[in-house]
Design a protein around this nucleic acid. Sequence first.
DNA 1: TGTACATCAGTGAACGCGCGTTCACTGATGTAC
DNA 2: TGTACATCAGTGAACGCGCGTTCACTGATGTAC
Lengths: 239, 239
Amino acid sequence: MATMTGMSDALTPRARAREQTMRDIVRIGRTHLATEGAAALSLRAVARDLGLVSSAVYRYVASRDELLTLLVVDGYDELGDAVDTALAGVERSDHAGRLVAIGRAVRAWALAEPATYALLFGSPVPGYVAPAERTTGPGTRVVTRLVEVWEDAWLAGVVAVDDRPTPAPGLAEDLARIRRELAITAPDHLIARGVLVWAALFGCVSFEVFGQYGAGTLSRPEDLFEHHLAVLVGTVGLR
Amino acid sequence: MATMTGMSDALTPRARAREQTMRDIVRIGRTHLATEGAAALSLRAVARDLGLVSSAVYRYVASRDELLTLLVVDGYDELGDAVDTALAGVERSDHAGRLVAIGRAVRAWALAEPATYALLFGSPVPGYVAPAERTTGPGTRVVTRLVEVWEDAWLAGVVAVDDRPTPAPGLAEDLARIRRELAITAPDHLIARGVLVWAALFGCVSFEVFGQYGAGTLSRPEDLFEHHLAVLVGTVGLR
DNA sequence: TGTACATCAGTGAACGCGCGTTCACTGATGTAC
DNA sequence: TGTACATCAGTGAACGCGCGTTCACTGATGTAC
């Protein structure tokens, strides 16, 4: 689990107990996510498993929606940490290797934490809207790393990708805004293909995690995924 | 909505009323899917909207899970119909055009019916397992059409795709089984890329329907999707 | 065509269950002087 | 260091709510003779 607000030392015992309880709430919440799903996530059930009376959790969490937000942020952070850890073992100049490492890390984490993955990348939870100011930062960690890969490759002059098919002229504005917000220099066709690779990567992972391939169709899903990653590496012109 | 058991004529009034009620249940169930989500789908609420007492729906549907199954089958069929309708307007020899038509039809349907799309392609519903004998048929209509496209192109000898990267040797068995079950002749590397295009297509649609792109990032998502389709056409070597 | 019986749609009450959230409270912990 | 007060974690009862499912029933529709 990702660390919460850090520094448990130099805190009063009461404050340390509070941090521990917050961590327990998130941990138990995640197990409930796995067994009941996000829509059925219940504060009362979390309180029960915590050994508290139901009203007590309101000392820690203002509402059921806030618990969901905690789980969303925690999930994004754990996924982001997994990706960063994987990237730490790959040379920054090995662009294809970095893309593959990101893909593997996302898949491995998703298969290990399918319920949290579903919360982040599956169906929206009815009636719940994640507060952008708290989830956008953690939620963009992976895509930021992906963009870094092709931006690095572009700057190194090693992107070998056709600029055909050309993105529609109407897209220029959107792509320019993305370029500005991410402070990158990659050209339109590379950004557009990058978005495709991003969506395709998560499409592959979702199909596997959500069981779209059908039970028993694939005896070696990891081999298929590796092949798909290799094709996607080519889609953004890396090698 | 897809038709249920057909032929309402030559039936007794009571039987016709029953068919109508079944259709109403599915229709109302879908509106509840949209507002409450699959996990919160409730037989009592459907009964209320139908103007019946809650126990009455048990004359039509054995349980809540069976209602979910009806919605799954109905959704797959509607999506399958949408794709078939789109394909009807494209020459069988226009392989790229057929792939693009399928992609557009999937996206359009998903955006029009996000809740049903989420039921079919989003997070699994906790505690519910779709009965394979009822959902596999309707659930494979779209992928069958996709496979048809590249199989046709392959037979016509117009697939221009590198066989690199090569799928891992361990995949040969899985790919051979797929080839046998679908009764096709396309080679390993084409089948493997086809699966990627399938997953990527739904990945793009899911990102858009589930809001992963973030509110306001894209003013013209349809243009981006068109570009992605064009790239995916190339991924399976069509033109 | 008429009658006797079987089938079926829909009723209403009941079962036992879990939920989110509020509130007044007790007792322990922390802090200012 | 000791005391008075403020803060805070946790309690237990209560609110009003909705859920899936079963069951004995009534009355209308369908069918066999």
